[in-house]
């Protein structure tokens, strides 16, 4: 296992250079990220591991332009995210990023189709309805389009959340504990889904998790502790999600 050379230029999707993030000030300041430098190629499935407070969610949020860095540089493709204002960051997320969270956060008063359509309409809305149906079909919910979240299982709700994140075909997919609320079987199927989007659409996907077993399916594994990347390794033979057991 080798550490990626941060200055190495290839077909990279995400590059960070001495990225740091501090929360609070003075005595209560917390250095959540310390001097992180990475180069992640396009189309990789990256798992970020670490204990609570290690900075993995903070790093995810930096990449997704939900938070702004305190110092350092963060580029996604040719775009430098550090220094963007709120409108620019929202625009970036609208077109470049899809988010999946542990607790789905679907709108309970909208059906599965409508939850996806809500995001699809943010971009080009003239075929939003069709694209929503296709996204849900792609996650295996073609027969659940008009169900409300309360009528879906946890796994199905997470699939809807994934479809919602993917309907705008973002180059980057960010997932924060996507299987944290799911049982083993359901979790595997969700991971299978996530993995397939990388292969089909050359989408760079980040998954944050406590679960080190999931790291076995990744192309690249980043281990964080106390805000630093303490280890970066490549899996030469990533496992299929069905082979995972936790």
């Amino acid at each position: 296992m080798t550490l990626a050379d941060p200055t190495h230029v290839r077909d990279t999707a995400i590059t960070t250079s001495h990225l740091s993030k501090t929360f609070g000030e003075g005595d209560t300041a917390v250095l959540a990220l310390r001097d992180v430098s990475l180069a992640i190629p396009k189309g990789e499935f990256v798992v970020m591991l670490g204990p609570s407070g290690s900075g993995k969610t903070t790093l995810l949020n930096q990449i997704g332009a939900i938070e702004t860095p305190t110092s350092g540089s963060l580029r996604v493709g040719d775009l430098e995210l550090a220094g963007l204002d709120d409108a620019a960051r929202t625009h970036f997320r609208r077109h470049q990023v899809g988010f999946v969270f542990q607790f789905y956060n679907l709108v309970p008063t909208l059906t599965a189709r409508e939850n996806v359509q809500l995001i699809a309409e943010l971009g080009d809305d003239h075929d939003a309805a069709d694209r929503s149906e296709q996204a849900l079909a792609a996650v295996g919910l073609a027969d659940r389009l008009d169900r409300f979240p309360g009528q879906l299982s946890g796994g199905e709700q997470q699939r809807v959340a994934i479809a919602r994140a993917l309907v705008k075909s973002p180059p980057v997919l960010l997932c924060d504990e996507p299987t944290g609320s799911l049982d083993l079987e359901t979790g595997r199927s969700v991971l299978e889904l996530l993995r397939s989007t990388v292969a089909e659409d050359d989408r760079t996907t980040f998954v944050v998790t406590h679960n080190s077993t999931i790291a076995q399916m990744a192309d690249r594994v980043l281990r964080l502790r106390d805000g630093e990347v303490v280890d970066e390794a490549m899996n030469e033979h990533p496992l299929a999600p069905a082979e995972l057991d936790w």
Partner: peptide
């Protein structure tokens, strides 16, 4: 979540 996925404030 909607804001994270691109909905403006």
């Amino acid at each position: 979540t909607l804001r994270a996925n691109g909905l403006t404030s």
